[in-house]
């Protein structure tokens, strides 16, 4: 189960483990479940994540598209420079916010 915490209008989601191909299905389903419950403003906190692969990045983009289609938004929370660079070189930070804090 994903840990979650409501902070003002944002629901902060805290994955506990790497966001990689072997572990994606449950992560994807849990995010989808939150969106279906009506949470349209999600912040994914990467504090407990060690690595993200290309399949994991695709989930972030899918999530971003689902949320914006419902009038919401995705924020990625990380202080990790490697992750910030990863979202930057893949130009995903042009589409959603990648920040150290809300």
């Amino acid at each position: 189960m994903l840990q979650t915490e409501q902070l003002d209008e944002m629901l902060v989601v805290k994955p506990d483990g790497d966001i990689v191909a072997s572990a994606l299905e449950s992560f994807r389903k849990e995010l989808q479940g939150l969106i279906e419950q009506g949470h349209v403003n999600l912040a994914i906190d990467l504090d407990g994540v060690g690595i993200i692969d290309s399949k994991g990045l695709a989930i972030f983009m899918l999530c971003h598209k689902s949320l914006t289609a419902k009038g919401g938004r995705l924020v990625v929370l990380t202080g990790n420079e490697d992750f910030k660079q990863l979202f930057h070189v893949m130009r995903m930070d042009e589409h959603f916010t990648v920040a150290g804090a809300l």
Binding site: S54, L57, A58, M61, L62, M90, R91, M92, E94, H95
Partner: peptide
């Protein structure tokens, strides 16, 4: 090259970068 909004195709780009 990759479609930044797409569902896949990022692997080779990541390896190259």
């Amino acid at each position: 090259s990759f479609d930044v909004l797409g569902d896949g195709g990022r692997g080779l780009a990541l390896m190259q970068i």
